[in-house]
């Protein structure tokens, strides 16, 4: 038994030696394999969610993303919708958005890029407030806070 333990220990130590020797030369291939694992994707709370529609104008596009209500075990009652303006943006942006695709505008957002000021007007009780409004490397991004209100309680 003692001898088996010694041999197993030595074997394990040599495997350890090999692991460390191949770790750095193999880092790119190991990490790209790991990146393909099903859980290796960023949570929508960080990416902003998938793009649900794209509004294209002459010099810029507006990506409206899928509302994010992600929670740990179940969806939350609060979330956000992210809007990304890309391309050559005018100094003043003003867009009305129908984020839930029901054919009715839910809010209007106005951005003054020179003053760094954003104003928001809600037409839907579920669209609450501006969480983030910031210039980005690709243009401008805004997150609007959302609240899930049961249909029965909607006006």
């Amino acid at each position: 038994m003692k001898r088996v333990k010694i041999v197993a220990g030595l074997l394990w130590a040599f495997i350890g030696l090999i692991v460390i020797i191949i770790l750095f030369p193999g880092l790119n291939s190991f990490s790209s394999s790991l990146s393909r694992a099903p859980f290796m994707k960023l949570n929508p709370r960080y990416t902003g969610g998938a793009v649900s529609k794209q509004l294209i104008s002459e010099r810029c596009t507006l990506d409206v993303r899928v509302p994010v209500f992600n929670g740990f075990l179940k969806e939350r009652n609060t979330g956000f919708v992210q809007l990304d303006w890309r391309g050559t943006l005018p100094d003043k942006i003003c867009d009305s958005i129908d984020y839930d695709e029901d054919g009715v505008k839910d809010f209007c957002i106005a951005i003054d890029r020179t003053e760094m000021k954003t104003t928001f007007e809600s037409y839907n009780v579920q669209a609450k407030n501006i969480i983030i409004s910031t210039p980005t490397s690709y243009g401008w991004a805004v997150r609007i806070g959302l609240l899930k209100v049961p249909k029965s309680k909607l006006p």
Binding site: S35, P38, F39, K41, L42, N43, Y46, N70, F72, L73
Partner: peptide, 20 residues
């Protein structure tokens, strides 16, 4: 539980990426 990573970094590529 959510099959996702809760960090605003890069999954692969770039400086100090999550996979590496």
């Amino acid at each position: 539980f959510t099959k996702s990573i809760i960090f605003p970094g890069s999954i692969i590529g770039g400086f100090a990426n999550i996979s590496a």
